[in-house]
């Protein structure tokens, strides 16, 4: 039906993507966001190679310690090193957050644009959205676990199986707002003069969507992306909290924050690190999104 792959630019001397990159580079917030994001990603994925402690190793004599040289972030109630747990947790949280967000965003934008653009599909797709909005999430997840956990863990191994399940679970329960927001914007865009003009010169639907509609609905999509990543990280922790997530010895930022909350008064520093990590990741993605949106807006570009 509609082909959504990027149309190859017909090799002009200065492609628009070079322009986009120049504009993006000039955006201070975006650069800063990008740098922070890369630092976090490198930190959590490379850090464990350099750090001597294992995130699951229990040293019961060293429990509930404050920051020290041996444990810069302190230790938890079982004497596990918080820095190691932050890094291990970050791997899971960032992977889950990014993939689930991309899935939700992709699904949401696709359904939103299709519904907004093709009048005939609007009704059915929006009723589908209503249905998904209405489904109670917890029973839905329980059913998914029941049906797919064993087959998936047999097929790809228990940890990857759970990962796929969680990402899909978060993805398919959070695409609906994006879809509705995008559709609303597309409905309005569709009636604009430039679309009419493009149509009058015989632009095919696929190109119409990729060249004219998509760039113009990018800003709500970017906002959804930022909010979506925060949402996915938090939802993951809610899932583990309900016993629907990763095995209990598998740290994630959301779970670290949740576990630390009950020690809020005794060890307030313990909530600080996961809270900071989640906020920084979300903020950096937000600025990245801002930069990307500005860079892709031809009216701003070059100013």
């Amino acid at each position: 039906m509609t082909e959504l792959s990027n149309p190859q630019p017909a090799t002009p001397p200065r492609s628009q993507w070079v322009d986009v990159w120049h504009q993006f580079k000039a955006h201070k917030g975006a650069l800063l966001g990008g740098v922070i994001f890369i630092v976090i990603v490198l930190g959590v994925f490379i850090g464990p190679w350099l750090w001597p402690y294992d995130s699951q190793f229990i040293d019961i004599r060293a429990r509930n310690q404050g920051p020290s040289w041996a444990h810069p972030f302190g230790t938890d109630q079982l004497g596990r090193d918080t820095l190691a747990r932050m890094m291990a947790g970050g791997q899971t949280s960032i992977s889950v957050g990014l993939t689930a967000m991309l899935l939700a965003l992709g699904l949401g934008s696709f359904i939103g644009i299709t519904a907004g653009f093709f009048k005939r599909l609007d009704g059915p797709l929006m009723r589908l959205t209503d249905l998904f909005l209405a489904l109670p999430i917890l029973p839905l997840l329980l059913v998914m676990m029941l049906l797919f956990r064993e087959p998936l863990s047999a097929a790809v191994g228990p940890e990857r199986g759970i990962f796929i399940l969680i990402v899909v679970a978060i993805g398919i329960t959070s695409w609906m707002p994006t879809a509705r927001i995008v559709r609303g914007d597309v409905l309005a865009l569709k009636e604009r003069e430039f679309i009419l003009a493009a149509r009058s010169i015989g632009t095919p639907n696929s190109r119409m969507i990729t060249r004219h509609i998509l760039p113009n609905v990018l800003s709500p999509i970017m906002v959804s992306a930022t909010l979506g990543i925060a949402n996915a990280i938090i939802t993951e922790s809610a899932l583990s909290f309900l016993g629907l997530g990763f095995p209990p010895d598998f740290p994630t930022w959301g779970r670290l924050l949740n576990d630390a909350t009950q020690y809020l008064q005794d060890y307030p520093e313990r909530v600080f690190w996961p809270g900071l990590a989640i906020s920084l990741t979300v903020l950096s993605v937000n600025y990245l999104g801002d930069g990307l949106r500005d860079a892709l807006d031809p009216r701003i570009r070059g100013r």
């Binding site: 016993g243 209990p248 010895d249 009950q262």
Partner: peptide, 29 residues
């Protein structure tokens, strides 16, 4: 699923590891 039970699981897994027993943990609703 219960915070104390998950702590117990982590501790017991470690002790069993010391006697050469591998443990996979699972917590359920």
């Amino acid at each position: 699923t219960n915070a104390v039970r998950q702590d117990f699981q982590a501790l017991i897994k470690q002790w069993w590891g010391e006697i050469g027993v591998e443990t996979e943990l699972r917590n359920l609703n």
